[in-house]
Amino acid sequence: MKAEKDVKRKEYYLFSPFLRIFHWIMASQIVILFVTGLLITKPMDANSTEPTFTLMSMDLVRDIHFLAAFIFTASLILRIYGFIVNKGDRLFPRVWEGHFYSETVEVALHYMLLKPHHAPFLRNPLARMSYAGLYAMVAVEILTGFAMYFMNSPFTTGGKLFGWVNTILGSEMMTHYVHHYVAWLIIVFALGHLYMVIRAEFMEGESEVSSMFSGKKILAHTPKDANELE
């Protein structure tokens, strides 16, 4: 392999600041939310330490969890605002376009190692599907989370806005369960996402990692959906 290559690369501007800021806030807050969430469900053993002197009081852990949740929700609102004002931002894959399905199948077959390669994309359709799934899970977490949070005073605005979630799920305990179970699913998603992004960077010459910082994909190949840039 040569140390220096003379390759012509093209720059594709894909991710607006709304999306990038949201992405990194989401990534950091999910870690915080997950760790504090586990601690809330199963608090650390207090018998071994003198609780008065521990920094890990339940109150503090809960406050961190709630603060992270509010930051996360606020950044999601910013993301949706960016989706409205920016033509280039997309929330969901374009499932109404016929070629989406054949392309998704092609990518899936490649990832299952049944096909040697797949056509390069700026917006990988299978990845986009998984992001839609992530948004669904995030929506469940936000709804169940606020349903539990605001129901300490059910007759305030917050309680009225989110109280119906407990009714739909049948009981508030079920809301706790759903919140906890979906949190694990998000972590499993995050692991898969991290791997697939790094894999795309190394194996397929996509600039997936750097593009989430700079917003630009600098590619030697021409992606199939290059004409979809707005």
């Binding site: 586990l38 469900t41 199963k42 990832y111 190692l113 369960y177 906890h180 179970y181 694990w184 972590i187 499993v188 692991l191 898969g192 791997y195 894999r199 194996m203």
Partner: peptide, 25 residues
């Protein structure tokens, strides 16, 4: 419980990732 299952699932995902990476190469 789900914490045990989830941790197992995460570990399985990790192993799967390594396997998939090797197979991909």
């Amino acid at each position: 419980d789900v914490d045990k299952i989830g941790a197992g699932l995460a570990a399985a995902t990790g192993i799967g990732v390594v396997g998939h990476a090797i197979a991909s190469v």
